[in-house]
Design a protein around this nucleic acid. Sequence first.
DNA 1: CACACTAGGGAAAGCGCTTACCCACCACCA
DNA 2: TGGTGGTGGGTAAGCGCTTTCCCTAGTGTG
Lengths: 345, 345
Amino acid sequence: MSESAPAPTRGAATLDDVARAAGVSLATASRVLNGSTRKVAESYRERVEAAAEQLGYTANLSAQATARGTSGIIALLVADIADPYFGQLASGVARGADEAGLIVTIAITERDPQREVRLVRALRGQRPRGLILAASRPDGPDAAGLQTELDAFAGMGGRVVALGPVGGDIRSVTIDNRGGSRALGAELAGLGYREAVVIGAAEGIRTSDDRIAGFTEGFTSGGGTIREVLRGAFTRDAGYAAAEDLVARDLPSGTVVFGISDVVAIGIMSAIRDAGRTVGGDVAVAGFDDIATGRDIRPGLTTVRVPLEDLGYRALHAAIEPEWDAAQPTAPLEVIVRGSTPPVR
Amino acid sequence: MSESAPAPTRGAATLDDVARAAGVSLATASRVLNGSTRKVAESYRERVEAAAEQLGYTANLSAQATARGTSGIIALLVADIADPYFGQLASGVARGADEAGLIVTIAITERDPQREVRLVRALRGQRPRGLILAASRPDGPDAAGLQTELDAFAGMGGRVVALGPVGGDIRSVTIDNRGGSRALGAELAGLGYREAVVIGAAEGIRTSDDRIAGFTEGFTSGGGTIREVLRGAFTRDAGYAAAEDLVARDLPSGTVVFGISDVVAIGIMSAIRDAGRTVGGDVAVAGFDDIATGRDIRPGLTTVRVPLEDLGYRALHAAIEPEWDAAQPTAPLEVIVRGSTPPVR
DNA sequence: CACACTAGGGAAAGCGCTTACCCACCACCA
DNA sequence: TGGTGGTGGGTAAGCGCTTTCCCTAGTGTG
């Protein structure tokens, strides 16, 4: 009688164990279990499969990667995985990777450019097939160091994909930040708003700059005025702090505050309320991204819908597809007006 | 003069390249760069380090894992990374892993038990040092299959850590779901509520069952009555759907609805509002977990604070520490009363 | 019936590392 | 001056796979 427990006594079953159990050579076992162009006779195939099943064999991916010289790994670099923006993005990446039979490893930059450089270097050790950079990087002093690492990465055969436009021959998945916020600005002007304050991230961060520029274009061409542009970061707390300051100084009723992202906008809303003002009729607020939360807060947050999950999915594909159409249709953005920006009566 | 560009022309620099460039043996280079108990003379060390730097060498982790027979990888299994609950948890895991110099790979179960089993098996291929199961699994029909995979995993030398109590010799990081919700129930009864409806996940899901039981104890012992327990899942949409149904049928003003988790509670709040009712004075709502969003919605969501980030961090340590005190002090839970459950006047 | 071919299994040479194990060399001591 | 231990570098044997070659059979052809 044969053992029915698939448990090898010590350690994991190796291909060698399987081959021995099936009474075939290592080569044949490999061909059957881990794919090959070579055909294997049905009778052998069955024996190998049975043995593998019996031993609970799973190929050792590290060894496989060493032997093949390439590794089914996709590395994903995000600023903060607890942030819903990155969460949704990661979700799309994970889905795509799963479909393609790839594994995703994740690393957190904590928005620290130096840390980002270190992480890219460390991740290189895995010899990933692709590296997806979702962390927004300023084009600051560490950009050179990053570029060096990315070059090394690419020189190693890995593909780098960035979210947002970048220089070099790096593939990137972009959204029309400028156009989206222009449409938002225009829409708000159309609703009757005439005064706006923008709360953005630090100058030099491309996404932030683009959104600010677009919003300004749209809002002013619709007849509005940008009273002020404050700088913070892409976080809820930065939005809160900036808005707190704003309210304390001077924030006339009827003003609309544009937070560079929904996360920021949500912080802004809280600050406004904590200061005893109300969001909507008194102070209007708008964001960008359309994270899930925006739907559930009251009033609902006016924003620009970004297909984040889809973006992650596309980034994954940009990382694995041999050919890549750089001029690929960028996902359409859509302005979503909710209660946080009621029409000015 | 020496090259200043650290770019190897083709492929990544190997340890062999470094050794050759430094004029030392492979063994010495390995000892210098990748740690060893053996000492290496300063002069050699310097030469090796210079060569490595010069070539932009980074150890190939796959090869290292194959040779060492162990892999600095921690696998994390979550139901949905876009869900803030798992996002915060993952954040803690990532932080701990980073501190320990480990890499985390993430996989998404999509709450599908069969998929979970498949994923555990696939993840085994990486021969991870540890596997953290954060997906809530029902003790359903697939439990046996999962257990088999987990045993195989453990038999391979990997450590399995589950969030929430489990059988077997699996380490687990738990929180006092029952005690927390008991306290919440008591608190709500103390605020004057007398009628409650609970919206939980499917029967058999431990976390849900514990929270329901605890809440029931606390609320009834405070003089309240549980009118009804509805079943859904740990998602916003499930909460929404259940509450929608509830409101349509019959939901007297003054009732408090306890959502098994904040995510569910947030769905409940939206459904209540979309039905034209108001949250707070009319229908009260409470949740569990204290995800970040709960702070920013209005009224604020009454909940039980769970240190999610910390939980993830502890799970990571449970996975890597050789010794593990199962009876470790479980993080204290704290009831947080916010505007969604005003005192009954 | 001899002669190409064409499967298709197996032996063995890697892949990039780690790590016994061996050994030359240099004190140090009696 | 001849042991006798450290030190510390190098050699080579793996780790678990993949893949190139080689080689034996089986097949079809004139």
